[in-house]
Design a protein around this nucleic acid. Structure first.
Lengths: 243, 243
DNA sequence: AAGTGGTCTAGACCACCGT
DNA sequence: CGGTGGTCTAGACCACTTG
């Protein structure tokens, strides 16, 4: 049983109202004092809920004016693969639609680059995993993943066939915290050609990632490779009032 | 003259201390009560300053434990081109290093896609701009930009030679607010080959962007094309405690 | 001038982690 | 258990936009 903070509950309700069209795009929302009365909370709590929605790009606020509902952003609507994806593919598409074909599952000692990325010394073994992820039976992304063995000693092929993230979260009890990603355009390599059915010289969208736990420990270094015509990567960048 | 909030001043000071090594990586920072005393502010204000740093990935907090300084993230260190780049190239590299070669500067009526992206009707003309941006005299990125004429009626080639963003912010008085980006891998086209000196069939990293003002009006739709071997795109994704 | 959102306070209670 | 961070309050003052 977990407790959801008031500001989060309120943010959820307000988000629902916006999505339901109860507050129209480019119109004003009720002012913070009214909302505080409606929800029987202090204005600071309302403010925090609104901050959440502003970070999501749903509203914007202007001192002296009010809180506006943001009109739809064209690129946002077309979007299908959000930046916030370190919860994994299964969380996004649902367990039924995602399957995995294991192409490699080895264990080895890390080279210098991997020692640095995962903050390990050369004697701490890592898993070396290559998986083809399929959505609705169709090749979606080819993932090359390195993870420290010591964090997940019981990793097996059965787990790899499903979601590693679910395993780490639910069975091992690790808490995921964040990720740093670097996005490149590269040439298709032999594996891309074989499994993603790329042609030689096709461009490939590669997402290089270091992900870490709530205590700051890196737990994953990975490359995700995508067909250039099948997938893109989207980012929402909200300017926090400074400029 | 503008007034900087206390929490922002404090966040800046604490950030400096972390970067100076005054608070060591993977060590605890002073607790919030102590910091509140040191800066003579309430604990809520300290909390807000720390939230800022947590969003930047510099620290992480654990209930019942304390505030930890995040160890360095490997990809973050190598990084040179941050996601937060809608302030423009000149703001990042400095005015002296960035020059622009104007390849196209036209005005035309928007097609349906552009009407949708920029929320215009078919009778409102837009600028159609192609610029090669050079850093230290070397080709860096090829930018194809569409902007509504009505927002910036006096745009000229002189301005294009420098920073459009500086012009919009300082001379026109527009307030930039946010951007939605979609990142693709694509084939080099004729312009890429000519100006970025790509070879035919080279992959190109393309960033498609819709940017909008503080009042929610879209003011720019653009494509930035980069040589695959010259540039990447980085994103920091911090999980806000939920999962 | 009136009304809005942004900041800040002083204190309270709670949830969580360590011992 | 003591100490930590997370939330929340009721009120205050300020900065800003609009009439």
């Amino acid at each position: 049983m977990k407790k959801t903070p008031k500001y989060e509950q309120i943010a959820n309700q307000l988000r629902d109202r916006i999505n339901a069209g109860e507050y129209q795009a480019n119109e004003l929302m009720p002012d913070q004092v009214s909302l505080a009365e409606e929800f029987s909370v202090s204005r600071m709590t309302i403010k925090k809920a609104l901050d959440t929605l502003a970070l999501e790009g749903l509203i914007y606020t202007r001192r002296g004016d009010g809180t506006h509902v943001m009109g739809d952003i064209s690129l946002k609507i077309e979007t299908n693969s959000p930046a916030d994806e370190h919860r994994g593919l299964t969380a996004f598409f649902g367990q039924d639609r995602v399957t995995s074909k294991i192409i490699r599952f080895d264990i080895l000692f890390p080279n210098e680059a991997l020692q640095s990325h995962l903050k390990l010394n050369k004697n701490e073994p890592i898993f070396d995993i290559v998986r083809l992820r399929l959505v609705d039976e169709k090749p979606y992304v080819l993932e090359h993943t390195y993870m420290p063995q010591k964090l997940m000693p019981n990793l097996s092929e059965d787990i790899l066939a499903n979601s590693i993230y679910d395993y780490l979260k639910n069975d091992v009890g690790l808490k995921l915290s964040g990720a740093y990603r670097k996005i490149h355009a590269v040439f298709a390599d032999d594996l891309d050609i074989e499994y993603l059915q790329c042609r030689p010289n096709d461009p490939v969208l590669e997402v290089e990632q270091v992900a870490w736990l709530a205590d700051g420990t890196p737990f994953e270094y990975s490359f995700s490779r995508n067909r250039y015509d099948a997938r893109s990567y989207t980012v929402l960048d909200i300017n926090q009032g400074n400029a």
